[in-house]
Design a binder for these strands. Structure first.
Lengths: 139, 139
DNA sequence: GTGGATGCAAACTCTTTGCACCTTG
DNA sequence: CAAGGTGCAAAGAGTTTGCATCCAC
């Protein structure tokens, strides 16, 4: 049976408030404000549980680690800003992609990712350097 | 200056012969036939070098580790078979995706991945279980 | 001969797991 | 109070790197 712990509540809320797919690290940062001492392992365990329950969706962009978003928005795609690295939902779809595959291939679903500049970063009045990127590690 | 070692030659050839994007592990397996004792570190080092030189392309599908393919095929997308997990090139593109993003977003490029059954796996005469999957790990 | 390349093992990042303790229902 | 949840640290997978040795040019 499912329990409602402070930790789970804080994790759920952090994702709900973000309105965009978040990294586990970002979720930890947002949720540990409400629950000091929250561990990354707990974030991962809850993410898995919430995905299995269908409350969250895993968003995996090419070459990126998994992000998490609230489920229920229906079929959609994602846009990643190449300036701030943040990911946004795109509620549009080119559709009708079954014909693109070679002879004999059966297309069942598709993933589309758009790249470019988000509204903030393409606005000359608000340069990218003024905003905090969604991830900061540099290999 | 670039050198042509037996290792680099074997790695290059393994990828060229595959005609589809390969995992580092698959490249190692194919290349160590020609160069016994080849190490995975050498595969990774050469992959990086060859990508930097523009000879190879990194193919990163959502939620998958990087694969590598020969560069120069022009703009294309990929198809992953959900039965054998292998990845194939798709030389078609829906095009004209710039209009899908929200107001103020600038689309510069896109990635599209199709999922379904490859020609082999959708052919009832050749069941998937008869073919070797491209990756075998099961978390 | 010398600088790039290799093999090995250790280090690193991201994620999962074992275990003892704690907390919710 | 029992089952599920948590924190910590250790373990795993995939990838990178330090270092001594090797070998192409």
């Amino acid at each position: 049976m499912e329990r409602n712990t402070r930790q789970r509540t804080a994790i759920r809320q952090a994702i709900a408030e973000a309105a965009r797919p978040l990294l586990p690290q970002e979720i930890l940062q947002a949720a540990e404000v409400a629950v000091p001492g929250l561990s990354l392992a707990t974030v991962y365990r809850n993410l898995r549980t919430l995905v299995e329950e269908g409350e969250l969706l895993t968003v995996t962009l090419p070459g990126e680690v998994a992000r998490y978003e609230i489920a229920g928005a229906g079929h959609h795609h994602h846009f990643q800003c190449e300036s701030c690295q943040r990911v946004f939902e795109v509620h549009a779809c080119p559709g009708n992609l079954a014909g693109l595959a070679p002879q004999g291939f059966v297309v069942e679903r598709h993933e589309l990712t758009l790249y470019g500049r988000c509204a903030d970063c393409s606005d000359p009045k608000r340069p990218a350097s003024a905003r905090k990127p969604a991830r900061a590690h540099g290999h």
